[in-house]
């Protein structure tokens, strides 16, 4: 049995086993349709779900930053890539749904899904292009924000990308000793009210509470959460919530994109 045949057999068995496991129906989860993952954030405010996950986000269409593999995501690389200013107001502005930003980003060829891994020629000098990207105010239908499907649903670049996400958390009082708890598929950086709280590096997958910030105070009123997420040839997504000092989710928050 060749290696390829072994792998295919393993894959088939895995799929068969997955079919008999309780969980999300494979038929349901296999459809890449945008509406299976997101809906427009039309209400004025939203609440975290029962586990505290923040599902309402302003998401910027992906910024192309080709990476053929995920081995490059050291701490330094992620910091350099995500503190780089791609567009004005990236670290300060609070966008609105439909806002557009002009970005200078690296051109990459469209993904050829029939060819397996995304192609990239590392030896070529990067070709930069000017692009106009749009912010989208969305509610995720899942606890996690499937950035990959956000990109594919809009017909945008899916691999080798940087995503930018912003949301606003309103508190009715100062909330001390809370922590931002996130999980991201590949690297990310997170800021709350302008303070850098987290940097996630490495070839990592999205786990609930994968990385947790130090204790912070969410102030009464509006708190701005901002994140950059970078990926190579993987399915970008993230989840985020606030937890208390015991690790319990905080749900008495109001989420808005305005």
């Amino acid at each position: 049995m060749t290696y390829k045949t072994q792998f295919l057999t393993f894959l088939m068995v895995s799929v068969m086993l997955a079919g008999i496991q309780p969980g999300i129906s494979a038929q349901q989860s296999s459809s890449p349709a945008f509406e299976n993952y997101f809906m427009p954030a039309v209400t004025k405010t939203a609440k975290p779900d029962e586990k505290g996950f923040i599902r309402r986000w302003l998401l910027l269409e992906p910024i192309s930053k080709p990476n053929r593999n995920n081995r490059v995501f050291t701490d330094s690389y992620v910091r350099d890539a995500l503190t780089h200013e791609y567009f004005p107001g990236q670290f300060t502005a609070i966008p609105k749904d439909g806002d557009k930003v002009k970005v200078k980003m690296e051109t990459q060829a469209p993904v050829n899904l029939q060819a397996g891994r995304p192609a990239a020629n590392q030896s070529q000098t990067p070709v930069m292009e000017d692009a106009e990207l749009t912010w989208h105010a969305l509610d995720s239908k899942l606890f996690n924000i499937k950035l990959f499907r956000f990109a594919t649903g809009l017909g945008k670049t899916r691999y080798g990308v940087v995503f930018w996400a912003v949301t606003i958390v309103e508190c009715d009082r100062d909330m001390e000793n809370v922590r931002l708890a996130v999980g991201t598929n590949k690297g990310s950086m997170w800021w709350v009210n302008g303070e850098e709280l987290l940097l996630l590096s490495g070839d990592r997958h999205m786990n609930v509470d994968s990385a947790v910030s130090k204790r912070i105070t969410l102030k009464k009123g509006r708190n701005i959460i901002r994140a950059g997420i970078i990926n190579g040839p993987s399915m970008s997504d993230f989840c985020a919530r606030f937890i208390d000092d015991k690790g319990n989710p905080i749900t008495n928050l109001t989420i808005t994109c305005k």
Binding site: N207, D209, S210, A211, V212, K214, D245
Partner: peptide, 10 residues
């Protein structure tokens, strides 16, 4: 371990 990657004192 407050998170997978986050040791703290508690």
């Amino acid at each position: 371990s407050m998170g997978d990657c986050t040791p703290t004192l508690a």
